[in-house]
């Protein structure tokens, strides 16, 4: 149960960088007014970030992932989150098992 000094420093650097990004936005909106188009831009952040994270998996990883993403998206129109996610996981596992 030992902690190496260089490892500890690396972890602290990561923690500091992460905290900086998490508090940064909060500091930003204290100094920038949020009217009109800026308000609009802020509201578009959630879908823009989520899409940027998943797009390479959905579109540029493999056929199994692309199909499973489509299954998940389609399921999400009607079914609760946990069911949709489970369907996606089962789809990707079976497609990979078939070598797709």
């Amino acid at each position: 149960m030992s902690v190496d000094l260089a490892t500890l420093l690396a972890i602290l650097a990561m923690a500091a960088a992460t905290a900086l990004t998490r508090l940064g936005g909060l500091v930003l909106i204290r100094h920038v007014s949020l009217e009109g188009s800026r308000r609009k831009a802020i509201e578009s952040i959630p879908p823009a970030v989520l899409m940027a994270v998943v797009a390479p998996t959905a579109l540029a990883t493999g056929l199994a992932e692309t199909i499973a993403c489509a299954v998940t998206a389609f399921a999400a129109l009607r079914l609760p989150m946990l069911v949709s996610v489970a369907l996606g996981v089962v789809s990707v596992a079976s497609l990979r098992a078939f070598g797709i």
């Binding site: 190496d4 260089a6 490892t7 420093l9 690396a10 602290l12 650097a13 990561m14 500091a16 960088a17 992460t18 900086l20 990004t21 998490r22 508090l23 940064g24 936005g25 909060l26 930003l28 909106i29 949020l34 802020i42 509201e43 952040i45 959630p46 823009a48 970030v49 940027a52 994270v53």
Partner: peptide, 28 residues
């Protein structure tokens, strides 16, 4: 080995830079 604090620190900054947008959005 040994770990590079500058390397992983900068990588963390880059990967997590989206948090600035997320925290600005949620802050409102």
């Amino acid at each position: 080995h040994p770990a590079s604090w500058a390397g992983v620190g900068f990588a963390a900054l880059l990967v997590n830079i989206r948090h600035v947008l997320m925290s600005a959005s949620l802050g409102t």
